[in-house]
Amino acid sequence: MAGRSGVGGPRYPAWLALPGAAWYALFFLGPLGIMAVFSVSRREGYTDVVYDFSLENFRYLWDPLYGDVFLRTFGLATFGTAATLLVGFPFAYYLARYARRKTLLLLLVIVPFWTSFLIRTYSWLIILSPDFVLFRFLRDIGVTGEDFSLIYTREAIYIGVVYNYLPLMVLPLYAALERMDWTLVDAAQDLGDRPLTAFRRVTLPLVLPGLIVGCLLVFIPLTGEYLIPVILGGDLTVFAGNLIAQQFLTARDWPFGAAIAMVVIGAMTVMILAFTRLAAREEQYGG
């Protein structure tokens, strides 16, 4: 993508990138470096960090217990990405191609962002409560049993994840679909493609960049998600984010917390590189 748009564009002096670069060096690479140093240090006493080189933290992490936590985190992120894509794509498609009141619908997607993430998530506690109208009704008409409750369950976490991350998927998909030239699809169908084939051969390749962006926007923050499991899941499960927060805030073992964070960052980098490479190849074949 980058290569394509760069060719033939106007050339700007390189120093224009300086403020951005300095910002990143200071506030992104700096903390990352500190974390890397922490991760090979060790904790002494209650809080002190002793800076000597040791891989002890990583050895301690090499434990099925933590392996399970990482796998579960990966599972949650994958689920969240797939689910928001499944729900978000048809919606974005409808929005871009058929919807009459686009601005209004788009506004409805964005409006939740005006409210704090925490408040939105806490309000789900009320919706998922067994005392909520919907669940009382389902109970009264006998659809659900007397003891049915979603609150503080895995399902509640999944619901919270899809709800909170959906806009991050819908917006880039919509942006890509909005730019589509639908006459291309018409042309493909005129030339004999069935709708599904036209979708696969024309629409999908054209919106692929938006789809990739959407997937990354959902997947990456989900690997660090820890508030939804605490609030909606009753804190009954551990994801990588919870593990890191626990090390920094309650176990007070910053070096170990930094080591976990480094592992998450490393794993994510590998996965994202693999994903974008795969997607880029798709795009080439498609185009």
Binding site: E44, Y46, L65, Y66, V69, T237, V238, T250, A251
Partner: peptide, 17 residues
């Protein structure tokens, strides 16, 4: 103690997981 904290932390993670 710090050692006890470390031991408890692992148990706590296992309990929550």
């Amino acid at each position: 103690s710090p050692k006890g904290t470390k031991l408890r932390d692992r148990i706590w993670t296992e309990f929550k997981a």
